[in-house]
């Protein structure tokens, strides 16, 4: 296993992808805990589809991909959050509307500009070659920001996730923190989606908290477990991807599925013993 890792690190592009991927995965897992618990997990999925559309447009007009995608996805994040909060509009169907809509627009733009080719495939399912050194720098900055904010606001994030009306009554600006989480999720998804793929990136947000919740019963243990899982699963997924030449995104998600099943089993056994 060590041998495998050493061989992987001898390729600069693999080293970049691994470091950036682990950091993105960690950020996504931390943000995923409040998102999943507040029933906002679908937002991650919606944002990745919007990101796909935005990247396609960026390529078509020959602009820098992130310069186009980041503002579009951030706007979409605020929009989706409003839709989810406003029960009159039926949040989940609105999210499905936006995500399939952007996916269709993206495919149309790509087929009109370059023709349906390998590009689409790598957008949808990710490519290990996608991480440039500027992407690596971005993911380091992003994960530093996410980690710092998460530590500083940890108790507030807990209070708002558990009970928004109580938190607001004690004077916390619940909306501000929810917006902050949505904003950081948008950034994480845009930066990570070319590595993981538009269709798979939201797994990084959803799997770690859901898996951890099968076994752990306090907020703190769920957060810590999610962080550890995100780092381990991504690394193992990349190693499998390298050893068997499988796509990175799908490999990582398959590792998550396996770990989820193991955790579900442990949870069931623990429940039985009690």
């Amino acid at each position: 296993m060590f041998d495998l890792l050493t061989r992987m690190f001898s390729y600069p592009f693999l080293t970049r992808a691994l470091i950036a991927g682990v950091l993105i995965s960690l950020s996504a897992a931390l943000l995923g805990v409040p998102l999943v618990l507040k029933r906002y997990a679908m937002i991650g999925d919606g944002l990745s589809h919007v990101g796909f559309g935005a990247l396609a447009i960026a390529v078509a007009v020959n602009a820098a991909p992130l310069a186009v995608a980041i503002p579009i996805v951030i706007v979409a994040a605020f929009l989706l959050l409003r839709l989810t909060e406003n029960s009159a509009v039926k949040g989940d169907s609105a999210i499905a509307l936006i995500s399939t809509g952007s996916l269709a627009i993206g495919v149309m733009v790509i087929s009109a500009s370059t023709g349906m080719n390998v590009d689409v495939n790598s957008y949808m399912f990710g490519s290990i070659l996608a991480m440039s050194s500027s992407d690596l720098a971005l993911s380091i900055i992003l994960s530093a920001v996410v980690l710092t904010l998460f530590v500083i606001f940890y108790h507030r994030i807990f209070a708002i996730t558990f009970d928004e009306s109580f938190a607001a009554a004690t004077g916390l600006h619940a909306r501000f923190y929810t917006m902050l989480i949505a904003l950081l999720t948008a950034l994480t998804i845009v930066i990570g989606m070319r590595l993981m793929g538009a269709l798979l990136i939201s797994a990084l947000v959803i799997f770690p908290p859901l898996t951890s919740m099968r076994v752990f019963k306090s907020f703190r243990s769920v957060v810590i477990s999610s962080a550890i899982l995100s780092v381990c699963c991504f690394t193992v997924g990349m190693m499998i991807s390298y050893a068997y030449s499988t796509p990175t995104g799908a490999s990582v998600v398959c590792v998550y599925i396996a770990v989820y099943l193991i955790f579900a089993l442990i949870g069931a056994v623990k429940g039985r013993i009690k």
Partner: peptide
């Protein structure tokens, strides 16, 4: 949301 929320009693009381 609270019905299946993973949180210890101490975590919740402290959040007040």
């Amino acid at each position: 949301i609270q019905r299946d929320f993973p949180a210890s009693v101490r975590e919740i009381v402290l959040s007040g």
